[in-house]
Design a protein around this nucleic acid. Structure first.
Lengths: 223, 223
DNA sequence: CCTACCGATCGGTAGG
DNA sequence: CCTACCGATCGGTAGG
């Protein structure tokens, strides 16, 4: 079976000959990914302080000290997970917007973004959740760098809202920043209560969009 | 000055003679309160795992071991703080609703509740914030008991929303639980971003109520 | 309410 | 990537 050289799937293949760009002697990048996956799951569930390097190591099938062959510190592991968490959601929203129907109006774009953000938060899962759950308890130095990454994603939303504002789709007595914080609030708060058996993230996104943009109150009847 | 027996304010007075209901020989309840105040502040800022008994003790001017004269464990201190955090907000909302204008409609009641909740969260401060910030990282046994206390507060909001529903004030295609989670989301998420220099909690409450019930989109013009 | 201390666990390192 | 270990810190206790 091994003679044909095709026995491994593309997912797990390793270079059989040293490649000029990725030398085969180097430690497999897979291990690094396994560490990050385990760390993301644990950080999401237990928080920053309660996640020990021994927990991460044993979940990856190695000993605590060995983690330092791949990362310089616990902080570096956590920061890597959280940055990826932000970028995963950001990329998911960007991708959903790129696939939107032509000539969609600014409000439709926001609905697409809301649904994509919620979907990524609950399906991609651990990385994005770890970012939101651990942000407050991470050392200040990391927090400051994370803020810059978050700010890029905030800018995406400000742009979406501003396009709706410019197009005249938003009510004049609604504050744009309050609206953005409100959107982040309803979306990210789902991490506190939404369980696997509950409503689907996509349906929830549609409902939240409807409430925040059309309002929960019954519209006044035309008379 | 001490001869008149009136030198202490009512806030800090102690029983000068043993009272049948609260014997004077007992340790002062003030100390217990000071411990809880310090714990609430630290739990809010640093989270459950990163708040040590030594931190709480030194903030109260005592040694770590002495805390066990007032509480049985770190868990008991945290649980006490968090239960009070829920009850403080709940009481603030109840009080605000009790003082509402006569014949206010159900939507006005909800706006009052939103503003009271936000006000309590950011002015009463540490206890309520500690509850929200630490809930996920507290031992399961405590979490289960806290859920029951939270459930009482949830019931208050379900009642408010249900009254609006029954009165026909809410749109038929809005889900009541989604609306409640949305309200909690926008309100509690303010802990993640609202800083002392920012908008006043009351103004923010009015804005959030406006967005969630009237909608951020410009209403269709009547033609 | 303090001193002195317990066993457990933490992030991290040396040497291989 | 492991073994063996470091100093620091943790929640909690004994005895006063």
């Amino acid at each position: 079976m091994r003679a044909d050289g095709q026995h491994k799937s593309a997912m797990t293949r390793r270079a059989s000959r040293p490649s000029p760009v990725a030398p085969a002697k180097a430690p497999p990048d897979d291990t690094r990914r396994q560490i990050l996956n385990a760390a993301a799951k644990l950080l999401r569930r237990n928080g920053y302080a309660s996640t020990s390097l021994r927990d991460i190591a044993s979940a990856t099938g190695m000993k605590a000290g060995s983690l330092y062959y791949h990362f310089a510190s616990k902080e570096e592991i956590a920061e890597t997970v959280m940055v990826e968490g932000i970028d995963l959601v950001r990329a998911a929203v960007k991708k959903a917007l790129a696939a939107r129907p032509k000539h969609s109006d600014p409000l439709e774009d926001i609905e697409i973004a809301v649904r994509a953000h919620l979907h990524a938060l609950h399906e991609s899962g651990d990385y994005a959740s770890a970012n939101i759950r651990c942000f407050n308890h991470v050392p200040d130095e990391i927090k400051q760098r994370l803020r810059k990454v978050r700010e890029r994603y905030n800018a995406d939303w400000r742009k979406l809202i501003n396009q709706a504002r410019t197009a005249g789709c938003l009510d004049t007595d609604v504050d744009d920043e309050a609206l953005r914080y409100g959107l982040f609030g309803v979306m990210n708060w789902t991490l506190e209560w939404l369980r696997p058996g509950g409503p689907l993230p996509d349906d929830l996104g549609a409902m939240f969009f409807r409430i925040l943009f059309r309002g929960a109150a019954r519209p006044p009847t035309r008379d």
